[in-house]
Amino acid sequence: MSAQTAIDIRNLSLTFQTGDGPVYALADANLTIAKGEFVSFIGPSGCGKTTLLRVIADLEQPTSGSITVNGLAPHEARLKRQYGYVFQAPALYPWRTVEANVMLPLEVFGLPKAERRVRARKHLDMVRLSGFAKKYPWQLSGGMQQRVSIARALSFEPELLLMDEPFGALDEIVRDQLNEQLVKLWNETRKTVVFVTHSIPEAVFLSSRIVVMSPRPGRIIDVIDCDFGAERTLDIRESPEFLKVAHRVREGLRAGHSYDD
């Protein structure tokens, strides 16, 4: 494993015990993600993409296999605040202002107050919400709320950003805007991003690599390289190259019998 490896997953399996018998959420997954990559996990529900992300974040424990995050076990990586996590929902605390929400992790880490404020301002700027610092989350639109939660994940400047279908609940117009902003953000910061989605265009547009997954048991069936350059805009989605990659993703999902039953 080189120093340029962000995440290294080997023979990873996870089985949930339920009342109806075991559920094989992940079976024998192998994947290496380099620093600075933007990797998407795509697949239908139940394919283990969110589970895999949660294993990286130490929110789930694998049944077997090994995994390192920035060279550390997930548990250590979490305690050393190596990653920022963005959930499906904004998960902002309604009793805190937008600014106080972004400062929340910094408070937990015990940063001095002045420093917290500077960092919160900086990252709210980054998601273009500096005018809303004193508002409460419920006074903002869904898309703005999700931008606040991204600023919150960036506020302590982790090298790794884990995003679990962050735009899944938003309408397509807002989702397109945020996709463009996210690409810019990634270009500016060059953080490693692991992004879970079930939208093919989103995955192809955002990623430098796409991991196609399939359910029962949850497994990786294809890994596709794709790079449309740093300056890409939404227009590339009509280009033949884009459609070609999207087609390959779709073929992969179909080969996994994802939607057969």
Binding site: A57, D58, L59, R78, L79, R81, Y83, Y85, F87, Q88, A89, A91, Y93, W95, L104, P105, E107, V108, F109
Partner: peptide
């Protein structure tokens, strides 16, 4: 407190007391 909100505090490695004061009590 919701599950995502708790997972968030957990991902920060927050202590029981920190989680109580910042999330669960409010």
């Amino acid at each position: 407190a919701g599950r995502l909100e708790r997972d968030l505090m957990y991902s920060y490695g927050a202590s029981w007391l920190q989680t109580l004061l910042a999330l669960r009590l409010p």
